[in-house]
Amino acid sequence: MLTVPRCLGTRGHRLSRRAAGPAPARSGSHLILLPVAAATFLLLLLLPGAASAQFPATGAPYHEADVRFMQDMIHHHAQALIMARMVDDRTDRRELRLLARRIDRSQDDEIRIMTRWLEDRGEEVPEVRLYDPLAGEHGNHGHHDHDDHAGHHDHHHHGHHHAPTHHGDEHAHHDHSDMAGMLSDEELDRLAASHGAEFERLFLQFMIFHHEGALIMVEELFATPGAGQESDIFQFASHVDSDQRMEIVRMLRLLRETN
């Protein structure tokens, strides 16, 4: 007999409210409690037979707040890309250009991770329709599919690329200004209209504000009962937190030098 100790607890408990997908098959009838030495830390023994039962594959214990977090963060990151792509035409300052390139690369990578996380779980991947003051600068006559834009700065990613793109159709874009750290259309216009030192100062102020919004979103995620616990989302949110904190420190330093 191969004994496979299992742990106490109802393994079928699922935190997500999502009803789609087949219900996980549970092997609860095979579970038998045994008295063990340390009463506080009971471990459960699984009898032979149960070990060969199908492990429930579909029931990822994620939370509706996890889904919302990923969907919101895609919008949030997409706006950072819009801002970062203004930099090269508005300042020659090397540190700022490097910073923008880093933000562009990392947030684009993360959008890809978030998209995949949502797709893998059959959750809705939001179509990003954000206001982009630059939308008119690149395209010819009003067609502003930025797929090509997303492609050229990150040449090594190809294949199935579902990263959302932003569109210049300002009438269709959704208002996300209630989300932490999101800039209003007016603020984006102000940024786009500025140049040189003024642009640098505005960019840093806005991006710090924007990044702090991401930290608030992470904080709220972990403060939501049951949320932020699934392995992938825990890792991702932790990563966003440390990454954006580091960039804030760096931007504060640059801002001090700018003023």
Binding site: C7, L8, R11, G12, L43, P61, P225, G226, Q229, E230
Partner: peptide, 9 residues
């Protein structure tokens, strides 16, 4: 603490 995989509410 009990090793369960259901998370913490």
């Amino acid at each position: 603490l009990d090793c369960g995989d259901q998370g913490v509410e």
